[in-house]
Design a protein around this nucleic acid. Structure first.
Length: 436
RNA sequence: GGGCUCGUGGUGUAGAGGCCUAACAUGCCUCCCUGUCACGGAGGAGAUCGCCGGUUCGAAUCCGGUCGAGCCCGCCA
């Protein structure tokens, strides 16, 4: 019976156990050899004194898959306080090829080394620090699901092969679909709104595909999005409050339950309040101009510099590094968003965290005739294959609703304090990278 | 798509016209080492300096092109 690393402390001193895992590190000190064996729960230190056993590993590299039988030895000098002695090694998969990248010490995350990091991803992810990033990402997803289930949301899966673009704006990937034109979904937007007519509250965690020719630290062509949509809202505020509660809970949990890991990854200290400061877009432009002396008020949207600045401003002035930028200009709004009654701004807010936009949180236009008018204005044919089913749902009754789309990659990146979205993605896809 | 910067053993760097037959660290191989945990010590293998062309008596080094990468901007989430 295979015992996991994490279970070793519960065993009796001297008990014979068997572990299995990968050779992670080998230190030969002459008459004494230390092995680190990696399994899914951590590294186990194995002490080998028998020369014949050490010989079994001659020529074998890190990554060799091993079965190790040995005696539990409580030992304060061992990492974790326990190690295996008097061992019998069995090689399950011998590895003779030298690893392309070293995995027993932290890998460089310097921007100029990103290519090496990603080219050698297959092996580099075995580095404990790298794996930790993705363990935390997994936990973030778990906390998100916990929160949403608790709040009566249903998880859905919508098609990623679609007939038309879901949103204006972002470029889509076009492909041949049995002789017809199709695109890869850039958002589950239309489907999740349709599903409000079924479950009221729905969410999806899935890839979205963007064909933007963007080369920045914030963009990739395949992103993992958390999409949320909720019906029967009293007002836009209700959506903002839900997103706020979600973010607050998820961030607090990860900082509580993974304090040690976040510390070892050098994540910044979390500065958060239950109520996120809300600044209108106009206020941010004004504050930014006044405090920095730079004039960006003619910009409709926030510049990346302003996004960074306002988050830092809110962190020091309001004690909260997540903020809502509210009253987005109507000129920038999508056809399915709801305009404020004055027509100048949209009922929409950007959630900013640590200098980047994590999410846009709008109320939707649920009134059929208004929606058609806005589609027309955006040059969208409501009878086209990509949109006719969407409009059908409205004809048959959709309540006032709102929601958001959330970049999980950016969230992971920012929680850990990484510098590039690609560091938070196992196998990122960008304008130049399709492998590994 | 625009601008700026960078390409040297597997990995990370040094070298900035001749001292380069390319140095250092790490990894790998051989040997020594009984408490390592970035183990230590001795020795060894491994790079036609991204690629093509040019300048020069001489190019890793200067110039042009090309390919690749990074960052910023735009676009976007």
């Amino acid at each position: 019976m295979r015992v996991l690393h994490r279970e070793l402390m519960t065993k009796q001193d001297g008990e014979r156990v068997a572990i299995a895992g990968w050779l992670h590190k080998k230190r030969l000190l002459g008459g004494l050899t230390f092995l680190n064996i990696r399994d899914r729960s951590g590294l186990t230190q194995v002490v080998v004194k028998d020369k014949a056993e050490v010989e079994k590993l001659r020529g074998l590299q890190v990554g060799t898959v091993l079965h190790v039988e040995g005696s539990i030895t409580k030992e304060p000098r061992a990492p974790g306080g326990v190690e295996l002695h008097d061992v019998n090694l069995t090689i399950i998969v011998p590895v003779t090829e030298e690893p392309p990248i070293e995995i027993d010490k932290p890998l460089s995350h310097q921007p100029e080394h990103l290519d090496t990091l990603l080219d050698n991803r297959v092996i580099g992810l075995r580095n404990l620090q790298e794996a930790m990033i993705f363990k935390i990402r997994s936990e973030l997803l778990r906390y998100i699901r916990d929160f949403l289930y608790k709040n009566d949301f249903v998880e859905i899966n919508t098609p990623k092969l679609v007939a038309g673009a879901a949103e204006g704006g972002a470029e889509v990937f076009k492909l041949d679909y049995f002789g017809k034109d199709a695109t890869l979904a850039q958002s589950p937007q239309l489907y999740k709104q349709i599903m409000v007519g079924v479950f009221e509250r729905v969410f999806e965690i899935a890839p979205a595909f963007r064909a933007e020719l963007s080369a920045t630290t914030r963009h990739v062509s395949e992103v993992t999005m958390l999409d949320i949509e909720m019906g029967f809202i009293e007002d836009h505020n209700e959506v903002l409050n839900l997103v706020q509660a979600l973010v607050y809970e998820v961030l607090n949990r990860v900082y509580q339950e993974h304090a040690d890991e976040l510390k070892s990854l050098k994540a910044p200290v979390l500065t958060l309040k239950t109520e996120f400061p809300r600044y209108s877009m106009a206020q941010i432009h004004e504050l930014f101009s006044r405090e920095t002396g730079k004039d960006t008020t003619k910009e409709l949207d926030l510049t990346p510099e302003e996004e960074k600045w306002i988050c830092e401003y809110a962190r020091t002035h309001d004690g909260c590094e997540a903020i809502f930028a509210t009253n987005l200009p109507a000129a920038k709004m999508k056809f399915y968003h709801m305009a404020e009654d004055d027509g100048q701004t949209a009922r929409s807010a950007d959630l900013l965290f640590r200098g980047v936009e994590l999410s846009t949180v709008p109320q939707r236009e649920h009134r059929h005739d208004n929606l058609l008018a806005q589609m027309k204005k955006s040059g969208i044919d409501p009878n086209s294959p990509g949109f006719s089913h969407f409009v059908t749902a409205f004809r048959h009754g959709l309540p006032p609703h709102g929601g958001c789309g959330f970049g999980i990659d950016r969230l992971t990146e920012k929680v850990i304090g990484l510098n590039n979205i690609k560091e938070a993605i196992l196998f990122p896809r960008d304008i130049n990278r399709l492998t590994p």
